[in-house]
Structure formats: structure tokens, C-alpha cells
């Protein structure tokens, strides 16, 4: 296992961020449908979550293919219509599952990193 641990942490963090981003997007959509650029703006307010803004579009496309979100065109008050993304029932389930697993995982890692495993 040593070679793996010797790897710079960058790659791991990138992978974790990428994996978590999908659920962050689902969480942002749980309140109300949003359009792509709006999601980018909200995610951009949280430091380090979205480094390359364009990568949200392949992600949204995949979430739609997997049936976690659905899309709908709506008129925009200014400019061309916008594609809105809304959470499906399946998306809600996926988000709820991730939420509980994430809490457990985060607590476990926090506990161990802070040396409080006693």
C-alpha cells in the first residue's frame, strides 16, 4: 500500500471533489429547479468546489442519463430560453443515501485525523 500513500494528495482530492460534486449539484436542485449557469454561480461561491466551470455540463448530462435529474426549457426574462434541471424521485433517493453515508464517513475521518480514536 506504500506506493499509493506516497502519491501526492492532489489526485485523491480531485477525485473526491469530482465524486462529491454530483451530490452537491443534487443538493442544490433539491429546493428548486435551476439552470446551468445559475448552478455554476452558486458552486463558485464555495471555494474549491468547481475549478473548471465547464465540467458541470458533462456532469449534468450524466445525471440526466441516469435519471437523477430531468430537464425542461423555460423562457428567460432576458435572452434565449434556459435549460432547467430538476431533481427526480430517484435523484432525491440518491441524495438521501449519500447524505447519511457522507455524515458517517466524515465523522470517521475527522475522528481519526484529529487523533481522537481513543
Amino acid at each position: 500500500m506504500l506506493p499509493y500513500l506516497c502519491m501526492p494528495a492532489d489526485g485523491l482530492v480531485t477525485q473526491m471533489r469530482k465524486g462529491a460534486l454530483a451530490y452537491c449539484v443534487l443538493a442544490l436542485l433539491s429546493g428548486e429547479p435551476r439552470y446551468g449557469f445559475e448552478l455554476v454561480q452558486v458552486l463558485g461561491q464555495v471555494d474549491g468546489m468547481l475549478t473548471t466551470e465547464g465540467t458541470i455540463y458533462p456532469l449534468l448530462s450524466r445525471l440526466r442519463r441516469e435519471g437523477l435529474v430531468e430537464t425542461e426549457w423555460r423562457e428567460s426574462p432576458s435572452g434565449p430560453p434556459r435549460r432547467y434541471y430538476a431533481l427526480t424521485a430517484q435523484g432525491k433517493d440518491a441524495l438521501a443515501t449519500f447524505r447519511s453515508e457522507w455524515m458517517t464517513f466524515r465523522q470517521a475521518v475527522d475522528t481519526l485525523l484529529q487523533g481522537g480514536a481513543s
Binding site: Y35, G36, F37, E53, Y57, G79, R82, R83
Partner: peptide, 8 residues
């Protein structure tokens, strides 16, 4: 998506 992003 990218085109819409640029417009917005």
C-alpha cells in the same frame, strides 16, 4: 450547455 453558459 457551453453556448448557453457563455450567453448567460
Amino acid at each position: 450547455g457551453v453556448r448557453e453558459h457563455i450567453t448567460e
